[in-house]
Nucleic acid binder design. Structure first.
Lengths: 201, 201
DNA sequence: CCTACCGATCGGTAGG
DNA sequence: CCTACCGATCGGTAGG
């Protein structure tokens, strides 16, 4: 009954690295164990199955996206400002928890059907946050008459793509990447008018 | 010395379906063989290795992108029109050769290091076609002063994402999806002026 | 293209 | 957390 077992987190971290590098199916339980200087079977003192490890990684990534973006989506703001902040928050998660995000995005299909369905539903809800923010802007006249559902998909596809090419050593900081994306998409939605300005923190 | 062995194509088609559904690593040689009503080992009468099958799929997908988009990129057009046509062509490949495109995009990391390097180089060249088209528009003043390299990545991320959500049974046709993307991105690049119009076929 | 097989490795468990 | 092991499955081959 201690606060939390750090060993389990170490396992998830090591697994996250390997799942991202080699993919879930091509990573063996022994690979994960050896990364932590354990014997293959010893991992099962801490986890019940390989899939449970993937599940833990996927859930903690999903939780982070929701924790960062959810409050902004629920806040009272202009659609353009809200969307800009949501994009920034999403990119911040992708870049700061890059491994987990990449595993979440690429490897969730290896979950059991039940768990996959749970994640599919969560992803759809999350996408809904973007749909609603866009629809708000269409309704208020801030944005042009675009298809909010399709636009949400386009934006999230581009933002999620960052997980597969971003490098902390690149020429652009995570914040710059976020702003570039926000600029580009807000521009695309608010055409024929100047982009809204006057940032809030 | 016949024209072409169709059995090999059948193998690649079946493998493309399975690699897309389950991923390369989680698809066994027996899975592929059984999809063609063969015994596991019999596949090796036609192919030398599982990786060779993946390689064939990846190469034919890459070839298609180049064949469709390359000539447009090399053509003499306004940057906006050129980019619009390139986006359309890219989306056409993604949607018409969806399985191959998805395998190409998601599973190429399971290739041997040498082959992976070859594909990485080809992908960079291909991305260069978009970079150059964008840079052309920046140079001519058609587009605003944006980072062509980053913008090319953003556009291709979104376009490639289509491979993972497009369904021929969806509400939108492939052509509509292509136009939506072209509209959105051209708008984002040509801000503060009306989008260029007057389509060529 | 099949049958029958190879060594290697897989996820997971027992028993300590 | 280790040793030692389980049955199952893997990619690939021999020999026809």
């Amino acid at each position: 009954m201690t606060t939390d077992t750090p060993r389990k987190q170490q396992i998830e971290d090591a697994a996250s690295t390997l799942f991202r590098e080699r993919g879930y199916a091509a990573t063996s339980v022994r690979d994960i164990a050896h990364a932590l200087d354990m014997q293959g079977g010893s991992l099962y003192a801490h986890v019940a199955s390989k899939e449970d490890v993937l599940w833990a990684i996927v859930v903690r990534a999903a939780d982070r996206f929701n924790a960062e973006v959810g409050p902004i989506a629920a806040s009272d703001r202009t659609a353009a400002r809200k969307l800009r902040k949501m994009i920034r928050a999403h990119v911040a998660v992708v870049t700061s928890a890059q491994k987990d995000a990449a595993v979440f995005l690429d490897e969730w299909r290896f979950l059991s059907p039940e768990r996959r369905a749970t994640i599919a539903a969560r992803r759809d809800d999350y996408e809904g946050l973007f749909r609603k923010a866009i629809a708000q802007g269409v309704g208020s006249g801030e944005f042009g008459r675009i298809d909010s559902a399709q636009t949400a998909i386009v934006i999230l596809s581009a933002l999620n793509g960052i997980a597969s090419w971003y490098s902390p050593d690149g020429n652009l900081t995570a914040a710059q990447i976020a702003d570039q994306h926000a600029d580009l998409f807000i521009r695309a939605l608010t055409w024929a008018k100047p982009t809204d300005e006057g940032e809030d923190p």
